[in-house]
């Protein structure tokens, strides 16, 4: 199980994946918007997205949970 967490304060600009979806290593899960940059958040290992903790428009703080991959 891997917890994917936000590296920095950001707005959730786009949610690319969905709960239950199979993702490969390096797949984009969500795209954050911060410092006027669109920053993809990637899966660091292949697996299934068992939890997606954010929705588009959410504000995430550094360390906030974005998704769980198992």
């Amino acid at each position: 199980m891997t917890e994917v967490r936000a590296e920095m304060v950001a707005n959730v600009w786009k949610v690319v994946t969905a709960e239950g979806e199979e993702v490969s290593d390096g797949a984009t899960l969500v795209i954050l918007e911060s410092m006027k940059m669109e920053i993809p958040v990637l899966a660091e290992e292949p697996g299934t997205v068992t939890k997606l903790a954010v929705a588009e428009g959410d504000l995430v703080q550094e360390g906030d949970l974005i998704a769980i991959i198992e």
Binding site: M8, M35, M37, P40
Partner: peptide, 8 residues
């Protein structure tokens, strides 16, 4: 590396 922290 823009992928991490936007490259800041």
């Amino acid at each position: 590396n823009p992928l991490r922290l936007g490259g800041c």
